[in-house]
Nucleic acid binder design. Structure first.
Length: 435
RNA sequence: GGAGGCGUGGCUGAGCGGUCGAAAGCAGCACACUGCUAAUGUGUUGAGGGGGAAACCCCUCCGAAGGUUCGAAUCCUUCCGCCUCCGCCA
């Protein structure tokens, strides 16, 4: 969410940003609703002032009959205008939450993921004297994943990791956590079953409320419906990444500038309904409903230069891990059309899967400026005693499935075994996966 | 799961339906004073929004959302959280 004053003053730039981000939003309508909203609010304030004046009459003895009558009529008028404001407010908010952050000047303009710009390729291109197998075949041959029984028990996209497969995934997680600690990111195991505000605040609801048709989030029902059909209990949701839990950690709080930047990382299971991805990547481990991930998050002061540096720091750590794992990977500059509304600047890392013959997204570093902080209400007091919204950034440190796939496909041998990257061996406890 | 209690400003903690944005204490800040690292005195100190060039004015907020009332921190309902006891499980 952006500051309405900022939107008023920069409406043309925001219109352009919305166009470039493929967001269909009528900014003029928003501004008109804003005018309406403020006018109604002013009217209510004046009526309330009148009501308060009348109520004060009661302080010195009983109010007169006339005063009570006038109070009643003011009350009715207030209710009317409040009802009108509520309607305007709802329309206003529905638009407000969709107003995009203006992308950084160096973000490539493009329509879709196809227009992302490759910003470099690194690592070792795997070469084989045999035809490399894809991860599904390797996992099957070595007994690392059981998809059939996964589907039997968990349904579509279900899977079991077994034996070395389980060990390798946990090794990846431990490796990433230790790397994060070394880089001074505080490791956390955050809640994954959270209240709606955490997901709304970090931008995982596309509107003002959860919508199962478009939001890739699982909702958990915590109560039965009441006899009258009402639903009082708070609904909870399963997070798709530790990011919302980590960012919400400080929600509603005012931090001190000297404590910033705050570097956090979280290990968590991740749940994704993959609404809208039907029929996409249906085979294998590429797109699944649940996996594990280590995610990193930075909360810093409202300074674009510093935030940019921190984003580079985070993507740098990811690249370091890709190097250490021996992956052939590349970095993408995400274009406007492939960026969600709140993002200012984003990079992806993609790792080459030689068996599947495709690039797999194995990392994504995003800078949201204060777009999430406004929704989550996280501020700080700067050196002049002024309160400002913090900037928030996040980056994938290590997801479980895709690097796992990359290891199987990149380090397979002719005999059918898989060599474990050196840096992982102390976490897995084994150096090679053999039959 | 059952019974009861509680939720007030940075913290502790009063609060009778109107004199309560809220006593008092602590902490913080400012000034004054004192030769001893602090005491004392006085004043001051919450958040969000709107209007105004400004001085300043107005509105909202006492866990959250509704309701009753001319008027709610105070009464009612629901929810959330914390505490105590019983039960259940480990």
């Amino acid at each position: 969410m952006l500051d309405i004053k900022y939107i008023r003053e920069n409406s043309e730039k925001i219109k352009e940003a919305a166009k470039n981000k493929n967001i269909d939003i009528n900014i003029d309508e928003l501004l008109a609703l804003d005018d309406k909203r403020r006018a109604l609010q002013l009217e209510i304030d004046e009526l309330r002032a009148k009501r308060n004046k009348l109520a004060e009459a009661g302080k010195s003895g009983k109010p007169t009959k006339e005063q009570i009558e006038e109070g009643k009529s003011v009350k009715i008028k207030v209710l009317e205008v409040e009802a009108e404001l509520k309607l305007v407010q709802e329309k206003y908010m529905a638009l407000m939450v969709r107003v995009p952050t203006i992308p950084s000047p160096d973000t490539p303009v493009g329509k879709s993921g196809d227009d992302n710009v490759v910003a470099g390729e690194w690592g070792i291109k795997p070469e084989f004297k045999f035809t490399p197998k894809d991860h599904i075949k390797i996992a099957e041959d070595l007994g690392l994943i059981d998809f059939e029984r996964g589907v039997k028990v968990a349904g579509y996209r279900g899977y079991y990791l077994r034996g070395y497969g389980a060990g390798l995934v946990m090794g990846l997680m431990m490796y990433a956590l230790q790397k994060m600690s070394e880089k001074k990111y505080i490791p956390m195991i955050p809640p994954t079953l959270v209240k709606g505000f955490a997901l709304f605040g970090s931008g995982y609801f596309k509107g003002t409320e959860y919508n199962p048709e478009v939001d890739e989030i699982y909702q958990i029902a915590t109560s039965e419906k009441e006899a009258d059909g009402s639903e009082n209990k708070e609904q909870k949701f399963l997070v798709g990444t530790a990011e919302p839990s980590l960012l919400s950690y400080y929600s509603g709080e005012i931090l001190k500038e000297e404590d910033l930047p705050i570097r956090l990382c979280g290990f968590s299971p991740c749940y994704r309904s993959e609404i809208g991805s039907y029929g996409k990547d249906t085979k294998g481990l590429y797109r699944v409903h649940e996996f594990m991930k280590v995610e990193q998050v930075v909360i810093c002061k409202a300074d674009i230069e510093e935030a940019t540096k921190l984003q580079e720091e985070m993507i740098g750590i990811s690249k370091e891990m890709h190097e250490e794992l021996g992956f052939n990977y590349r970095q993408l500059r995400i274009c406007t059309g492939d960026m969600s509304a709140g993002k200012y600047k984003a990079y992806d890392l993609e790792t080459w899967l030689p068996g599947s013959q495709r690039w797999a997204e194995t990392g994504s570093a995003s800078n949201f400026l204060d777009w999430q902080a406004r929704r989550l209400n996280v501020k700080y007091i700067d050196k002049n005693g002024e309160k400002k919204y913090v900037y928030m950034l996040n980056n994938t440190a290590m997801p479980s499935p895709r690097p796992f796939m990359a290891i199987l496909e990149s380090f397979q041998t002719e005999s059918g075994s898989v060599k474990i990257p050196k840096v992982l061996q102390k976490f897995t406890g084994f150096e090679e996966i053999k039959k």
